[in-house]
Amino acid sequence: MPEDRAPATPVAAAPQSPARAPAPDRPRSFQDVILRLQDFWAGQGCAILQPYDMEVGAGTFHPATTLRALGPRPWAAAYVQPSRRPTDGRYGDNPNRLQHYYQFQVLLKPSPPDLQDLYLASLGAIGLDPARHDIRFVEDDWESPTLGAWGLGWEVWCDGMEVSQFTYFQQVGGHDCRPVPGELTYGLERLAMYVLGADHVMAMPFNDPAAPVPLTYGDVFRQAEAEYSRHNFDAADTARLLRHFEDAEAECRALLDAPETDPRTGRRIVMAHPAYDQCIKASHLFNLLDARGVISVTERQAYIGRVRALARACADAFLRTEAGGFGGPDAPPA
């Protein structure tokens, strides 16, 4: 599969330079912002992936970031990832808060020397010309206790508003990242609202306002936001969620404990990805339990620790796969 055939050379070594000139006009809709970002990063040689088909809290959880940040093989991918933060649900009423929202995620490994310039050019591509807008890199170190990951970087401000996170990953799943990936995360709703001049997320045009069926963000999501808010805060069955959490944890462990050699094919197949799916599940179930208010302050740390243990174990397993560099020229000692 293409995922396993990462480019042989880092994207930075042969970027399509110079970065494409920004489009003269501004995006007209939410999806226009997404399409332009995809187009821009495709132009920089990134694989444009599709969202991961599971519930995650942030684009970082996509295995194309979490797992691919590890190991010696170069990587270059960009994708939109729907993300869920159950506690942020406001029934669709709040102008800025959503329990389901989109992130645009870019991961380049190794981080190219001109990553800041590329990022600025990407803002130009969505109508934010750095010669007209005040772009600032403000210290913000990133840490994910559930992924056992951290990095240094900035939150990027555009005219006083935070529009992206920019991080040089140092560790994921407890492993040093070598080479170091550069990660960009664009908060799409906020960014698009700014570019489009929308005051309420639900009022933002989703498709072209001149289309035969013009749809706003609210037309697409308001109904679901209300339903999920009720679900997250009151309706989700906590006993069942707890059980699912335990199941996901056990399944993750079981997959990782399976012998590396597949009895059916006789091949060495470490199941890092299926195990990591269970880790993602556990993480989302924890978020739901948290929104339901059934996790006390002291329990909280324990749950986070359990998810982190899974993430670490999955990272260990990934490094024993071919995609993680196992058996390759730069392979770490097995």
Binding site: A12, P110, S111, L152, Y168, P179, V180
Partner: peptide, 8 residues
């Protein structure tokens, strides 16, 4: 106070 590596 905190430092980092980058690239390769």
């Amino acid at each position: 106070p905190r430092s980092m590596r980058w690239g390769t």
